[in-house]
Design a protein around this nucleic acid. Structure first.
Lengths: 212, 212
DNA sequence: GGGGTTTTCGCCTATTGGTCGAAAACGTGG
DNA sequence: CCACGTTTTCGACCAATAGGCGAAAACCCC
């Protein structure tokens, strides 16, 4: 989600939402506030620090240090955004202001990596979803085709998929109705690493702490 | 590596090395400068951003935002450090100033996680090393016993180990001389994630960009 | 009811991680 | 110099995971 800058520098170029850190908030509170106030995005399914961008010349004038975040919104929510703001497909991004293009590149890389070894994929989907929908999100994020068969098997083995019992109606061209699933917390708990060679006894990789 | 604070606040408590960001440097240059100037640590085998710590009350007085780093030094180099600075074993850390204990906890978690899915382990070892030495480093970082047999096989399969042909003399209690290895760049290139389900053609997981 | 479509499931294979025990190559002490 | 303890190395074997393929299931429309 980008908004079009009105003023110089870099007028009319697209930039990431953000703003200044207040003295009484930490960086995560700050980005959540910016997103809520400026573009009315409140239903973030995942927020994590990406990196600090601090090159002295990253913006003209006095140096600005930015803490970049990766934020995800489920695909079924579509927040109303101001007129100067719009969603863009990551495959075809416009010219962006400052170093924001490299920030986006980092975010994409991070998301792609974490999809395979965390349960971050569920942050992209609605509470109830079909395997096909989930596969489409994975494909979009990863940039290549993903097998629905394998995706379901891998996630099932990790105990992350729980059938709701319901089914979704097929599309206009027919087809078997897809079973609905929800995310199950019985499996891997965290939204983060694990899989460290293999902790001592545990057959399952152990969960770690927060968003490291 | 910690140094003991002389002044209030938190006098006599141990804290992580660091300092203020200058206007003409980015955060990584800054931490490298601090380590070189203050504690004469110049041979870092790996440096990566950990996270921003920005709670308004993390230090007394005006708010200080810290960008924390994970830095690794090979086990064969032992930089001379000032008298108020000392190496500490992560298993038995002293009381630490501010929120530095939580920073260390994050760093440990990050290192442990990345050991299994990156080649970060080689940053802990000298240019030439035995499997036993490498295993000891892995064990220390992970906090549990690691099998040398398995470590060697896993790393070999990833094409990361290259035998030098030489051997290391056995210890005072005898034993077969250990073969020496060096890190090979033929395998996974990056010091970072990959293993994304499985990119299209590639039998090998594809490498990504920098230190994301 | 037949043809096209989409999902689901079962079988088969390849790769990876993990364990175990034997063999190799060294010191040492009688 | 020869048995013994020690450490490393290597092979065999097993379990868990990932990926591919095709058949069957369940729906649409005509």
């Amino acid at each position: 989600m980008l908004w079009e800058r009105a003023r110089e520098p870099h007028a009319h170029r697209w930039s990431l939402p953000g703003g200044e850190l207040r003295v009484d908030e930490d960086v995560e509170s700050s980005i959540r506030r910016q997103l809520a106030e400026k573009v009315d995005v409140r239903q973030l399914s995942h927020v994590e620090q990406l990196a600090v961008f601090s090159a002295p010349d990253r913006v003209p004038g006095p140096r600005v240090v930015a803490t970049a975040f990766l934020g995800l919104v489920p695909s079924d929510v579509d927040p109303e955004v101001p007129s100067d703001t719009a969603w863009h497909c990551v495959e075809e991004l416009p010219a962006m202001a400052f170093d924001h293009a490299s920030i986006v590149a980092r975010a994409r890389h991070r998301l792609g990596s974490k999809l395979s070894y965390t349960n971050l994929g569920f942050a992209l989907a609605p509470p109830e979803f079909t395997i096909s929908l989930l596969r489409d999100h994975y494909s979009a994020a990863l940039g290549y085709r993903v097998s629905a068969t394998n995706l379901q098997r891998v996630l099932s083995r990790r105990l992350l998929l729980e059938p709701t019992g319901g089914t979704a109606p097929p599309g206009p061209s027919g087809g078997r109705p897809a079973a609905l699933f929800r995310f199950s917390a019985k499996g891997i708990k965290v939204t983060d690493p694990f899989a460290v060679l293999r902790p001592p006894g545990s057959g399952r990789p152990a969960g770690g702490g927060g968003t490291t």
